[in-house]
């Protein structure tokens, strides 16, 4: 930050630049270290906490921490129960993982970017560090495509490979050979649109939220009036963002469950 001239473009550009490691000449062989490390740390904290709590879980009267975890897990399990009819021993943990992880990754947006930038710079010696993993399209695509792979896996597992192929050509319009191309086209559109909408919805919301914060902080740097109004609007946006953070995590979880439950249903 010190090296370059500080103007709105460089400010926003700095906050939207990933910390990367490259393994090859092609831009594909790049890792966004910030996204990976932040999400991994959040995941380790969240699931480590869950594990610590449930490890000593008692069937008797639960303590406060266990009650909190049970409340969260029960909430997720109730949602899954409403949509998915079958053995929930995998689907509920999956939905729980998605919900907890995504909500924490989204919640990184609440940390004040410039304070955190100073910490990343001077404590961890990282000049670039994007702290909201879900504002990185790689992260949301990773989640959505994992769910997509699971979706196809369960489609084949439940209906058999033949059944899955049959469904690709014979649903939803009908088994008439004349309708096969239409069915196939329809299913392809569905298979492509599902992960796209799944991941881009989350990414768009979080990226926009991050950007609006940055714009407000740019305004806050323009003078006293800008600081006052920037702070006020920043509070307003942060409060509204609480809703977005929770809602997007919830939507992401619900879509995960819906897609997987659709994969279990035969047409």
């Amino acid at each position: 930050m010190e090296a370059q001239e500080l103007n709105p473009t460089s400010y926003i550009g700095h906050h939207l630049k990933n910390q990367t490691i490259s393994f090859g000449d092609s831009p594909f062989w790049t890792l966004h270290i910030d996204t990976l490390v932040t999400s991994a740390v959040l995941g380790v904290i969240a699931f480590g906490f869950l594990w610590l709590v449930v490890r000593g879980a008692t069937a008797g009267v639960p303590g406060k921490r266990q009650a909190f975890v049970e409340l969260a897990v029960g909430f997720v399990d109730d949602q899954v129960k409403g949509i998915f009819h079958g053995n929930r021993n995998f689907i509920t943990p999956l939905a729980l993982t998605v919900f907890v992880w995504v909500i924490l990754m989204n919640a990184m947006d609440f940390l004040p970017v410039d304070v955190m930038a100073w910490i990343y710079e001077h404590v961890f010696h990282q000049h670039y560090w994007r702290q909201v993993p879900t504002a990185d399209v790689n992260a949301t695509f990773a989640l959505a495509l994992s769910v997509w792979v699971l979706m196809i896996f369960y489609s084949i597992k439940v209906k058999g490979f033949g059944g899955w192929i049959h469904e690709l050509f014979c649903a939803p319009f009908g088994a008439n050979p004349l309708l096969w191309p239409a069915n196939f086209l329809f299913n392809m559109v569905e298979y492509i649109s599902k992960p796209l909408s799944h991941s881009l919805r989350l990414f768009g919301n979080m990226y926009a939220g991050e950007l609006i914060f940055l714009l407000l902080w740019v305004w806050a740097a323009t003078g006293l009036v800008g600081t006052v109004f920037g702070a006020m609007l920043g509070v307003g946006w942060a409060i509204f963002h609480i809703l977005i953070v929770a809602l997007q995590a919830f939507i992401f979880m619900m879509l995960t469950v819906v897609y997987l439950s659709m994969a279990h249903e035969s047409h």
Partner: peptide, 11 residues
Amino acid sequence: NLTLFAQAATF
């Protein structure tokens, strides 16, 4: 980029 696959593995 590769982040996608690394992230999927973490997931």
